[in-house]
Design a protein around this nucleic acid. Structure first.
Lengths: 214, 214
DNA sequence: ATGTTGTTCCAACATTTGATGGAAACATAA
DNA sequence: TTATGTTTCCATCAAATGTTGGAACAACAT
């Protein structure tokens, strides 16, 4: 059976898909309470009741948005995994940091929405009731930090979280950080990649069964 | 001249101070739009108009909250600086990571509010019009990453940002990450410290005029 | 006591916001 | 064309939210 969300994902030009796309951006920029259904409808260029016709209440739309970006992220991670598979750790990290940074800079609402979920509460508590996969175990596995994706040690999960958050922070904080550094976008992007490698690679690249450059 | 904010900071038991304290927490948990003046008033146990009597409109109260936590953070950073002064880099980092993590876990709204400022927009744009110091240069100086706090290279600022964000993330994301790892608070706190050191120290502790353990 | 000043609460207002009913417009098949 | 089902918009509602006026109250000096 095909859910409404899957239909909207397959056809981004349909009304459902267009609404979902704009909702991603608005929810990502302003957060759940900061975004209003009217802002989203106006962005799409439709009446507000058309939005409700397609997606029902605000919290349902938000839920769909979260699942949508989660699925995008999952697909991207899988794509990266196939690219870096078999390489040595340092190289794997360099490539995946570059690829993920590029990707998230093109879709900053993904990082925004994830960070909002991590750090903010919502008055409407029904929102956190649905399941969202987290990928932490998969990334740990893909990085060779554990044998299987089952029973990943917590300390390893923490390290993966630190890594993911570091990327998301620089993506979501672009406006703030860039105005602080007073540099253009492309320069910022390069600096982010360099900083991520500077911070993350030395930590993971030391000895161990899988470490170091051979 | 003593501003209303300074008065409230000096006397946390005064009505002004009590409101400010609760406002910190509520704004920190729910963000600017997620927090309502009624929620804050109810938390203090006062009528909503008493809140307006003391702090004026919502955006003004929010501004005071931001300045308040910023000042707290500044004082804490200065305190830590005097403690670690003169030690070797690795030791400086270990101690300051421990101290800052402990401190922020006791006052998570500081991390929350900073992250909200970094990552989220606000419909009310007047909010970002006031100046807030950022401390990045001071931390760079304190870590010995640059000679003076003037003209800190951007790449160094980026590294400091990565470091600060790493702490804030684990503090603000406690609820989310802990429920993911299924561990109690104290265990989480230890794991955060360990992970921060694992990630950050190898990056900064390599050669250079100030590197390594002697 | 009386007036003054500062503080608190009750009640209300205007706007925003989430949400819906129903009429029009559109498409499509019979 | 007519009938049927879908989509869109206009008008509107109810609740939530930011904000204020004014009365009651308290503290305190005169």
């Amino acid at each position: 059976m095909v859910t409404p969300l899957e239909k909207a994902r397959r056809d981004p030009d349909s009304m459902k898909g267009r609404i979902l796309g704009k909702a991603r951006r608005i929810f990502g920029e302003y957060g759940y309470h900061g975004a209003t259904t009217r802002m989203i409808a106006e962005e799409v260029g439709i009446d507000i009741s058309t939005l409700y016709y397609h997606w029902g209440e605000k919290s349902d739309l938000y839920e769909s948005v979260i699942l949508d970006v989660t699925e995008d992220l999952r697909e991207k991670l899988q794509e990266v995994e196939t690219i870096i598979h078999g390489l040595v750790l340092t190289r794997r990290m360099e490539i995946s940091l570059d690829l993920m940074t590029d990707y998230l800079f093109e879709h900053p609402e993904i990082s925004n929405l994830l960070l909002f979920r991590y750090f903010g509460k919502t008055r409407d508590e029904s929102i956190f009731d649905f399941y969202v996969p987290e990928f932490v175990s998969d990334i740990a596995r893909s990085m060779g930090l554990c044998k299987s994706r089952e029973n990943v040690p917590n300390i390893v999960r923490m390290r993966v979280l630190a890594m993911m958050n570091a990327i998301h922070n620089f993506v979501s904080g672009e406006n703030f950080f860039r105005s602080m550094l007073k540099i253009p976008r492309d320069e910022y992007l390069d600096m982010v990649k360099e900083t991520l490698k500077f911070i993350l690679i030395p930590a993971f690249d030391r000895g161990g069964p899988d470490g170091g450059t051979p």
